[in-house]
Computed example of a mutant assay.
Amino acid sequence: MRDVVILGSTGSIGTQALDVIRRNPDRFRVVALSAGGSQLDLLAAQVAEFAPEAVAVGTDEAAARLRPQVAGVEVLGAGGNEQLAARPADTVLNGITGAAGLRPTLAALAAGASLALANKESLVIGGRLVMDAAAPGQLVAVDSEHSAFAQALRAGAKGEVRRLILTASGGPFRGRSRAELADVTPEQAMAHPTWNMGRVITINSATLVNKGLELLEAGLLYDVDLDAITVVVHPTSDVHSMVEFCDGATIAQCSPPDMRLPIALGLTWPDRLPDAAPAYDWSQPRDWHFEPLDADAFGAVELARRCGKAGGSAPAVFNAANEVCVDAFCAGRLSFLGIVDTVDAVVEQHLADGHVPTDALSVDAVLGADAWARVRAAELTGAA
């Protein structure tokens, strides 16, 4: 029986993690849950079903509203994610969205729990701070692509790896030229062809910022040079990523697009959980297609690679500026192409004026760069 803390329990990752746990009550016990506070009724229902010892919401006001619904359960407000991450547990699943996941990530690692990380931003912005805090095998990626890498890497030794091949669905605008993206609306950008995700992640998948973040995450997790990571467009999301070895062999991890498989692996790594998700029906024909990424139309991946090579605080600026630009796009103040163009402008200013190198990085420096980037992006998008 594994004691589990789930941060972000009302989001897409959190609800699917609870579904995995629901179907395996002899394997897992939920000891704590957290959520932002916008879906208190759902959170209260989760508390009633899974009976955690403690629950946290994003604000003290939301905590006050939740307490009458979950009598007898400890309820934490602001700062609660970090407190729950540090509680005794076998596994902490961090499914928070955005930079807010950094401190809980570091708290879970310091407490010694296995960290199932779906909050890619905390690794991207924290960089070496997070990797240096993690013991060998303590950090397990939940993203389907990074879970695929971890599985495929079992096929050979580290010195035999030639490159990682990161697959991308291409989002709803695959095949469009840059000129054809000029008039994209938020409603069109939210129509992802494969996955059902939250707003920020869905827009990031349309711009391919999400793939840029995943590239940075892969380089850190598996200690691979960023130039040895290739992004390939694969529309059906059946092949979740691949590893090419020095002898010419390529090992792919394939499964129907269902996040419960990588979530289950995150909860039980290195073991597999039987029937975590459906397998393919191989009696049916299937056709998998791959194509190169159009870096002119979707410049986010190469911008992310440039930030990763700069290291230090640059990835934090990339991530923070993008979150502000996504809000501006959804509010009608910024065009679709303006998202990455504005992020690029913020990054360039930071590299010229305020970049903190990797060897001087600290949590305060990361969060300071994050805050500066949000203010600057807001100024450029008319929100300030």
Rank of each mutant, 00 (worst) to 15 (best):
D19I: 00
V20R: 08
V20G: 09
V20P: 06
I21S: 06
I21V: 15
R23V: 11
P25G: 13
F28E: 05
F28T: 05
A32Y: 00
S34G: 08
A35E: 05
A35S: 08
S38C: 07
S38N: 15
S38I: 09
S38P: 02
S38G: 14
Q39A: 15
D41P: 05
D41Q: 14
L42W: 04
L42Q: 08
L43P: 04
A44Y: 06
Q46Y: 00
A48L: 12
A51P: 05
A51T: 15
P52Q: 08
P52A: 07
P52F: 03
P52N: 03
E53W: 10
A54N: 08
V55H: 12
A56M: 01
A56I: 09
A56L: 02
D60H: 14
E61D: 15
E61G: 13
A64R: 06
R65S: 09
L66F: 00
R67M: 04
R67S: 02
R67G: 00
P68V: 03
P68Y: 03
P68W: 01
Q69M: 15
Q69S: 14
Q69H: 09
Q69C: 05
A71F: 06
E74W: 05
L76F: 14
G77D: 07
G77S: 00
A78Y: 12
G79P: 01
G79K: 03
E82A: 15
Q83D: 01
Q83K: 12
Q83L: 12
A85P: 03
A85F: 06
A86S: 11
P88I: 11
P88W: 10
P88V: 13
A89E: 05
A89M: 11
V92N: 03
L93P: 03
N94I: 10
T97K: 04
T97G: 07
G98S: 02
G98A: 02
G98W: 09
G98Q: 06
A99N: 06
A99Y: 13
A100F: 04
G101M: 05
L102M: 11
R103P: 12
P104E: 09
P104D: 04
P104V: 02
T105E: 05
T105H: 02
L106Y: 08
L109E: 04
A110M: 10
A111V: 10
A111E: 11
G112M: 11
G112R: 10
S114M: 14
L117M: 09
A118T: 07
E121F: 03
S122P: 03
L123E: 08
V124R: 08
I125G: 01
R128F: 04
L129D: 10
L129I: 10
V130M: 02
M131Q: 10
D132S: 15
A133G: 13
A133N: 12
A134G: 13
A134E: 11
A135P: 12
A135D: 13
P136A: 00
P136K: 02
G137L: 10
Q138A: 15
L139T: 10
L139N: 11
V140L: 11
V142K: 06
V142D: 10
V142W: 12
D143R: 01
S144A: 12
H146W: 07
S147M: 00
A148M: 01
F149S: 01
F149H: 06
F149A: 05
F149I: 05
F149D: 00
A150W: 12
A150V: 06
A150G: 12
A150Y: 06
A152M: 06
A152R: 08
L153M: 15
A155M: 07
G159D: 08
E160A: 14
V161R: 13
R162A: 15
R162D: 14
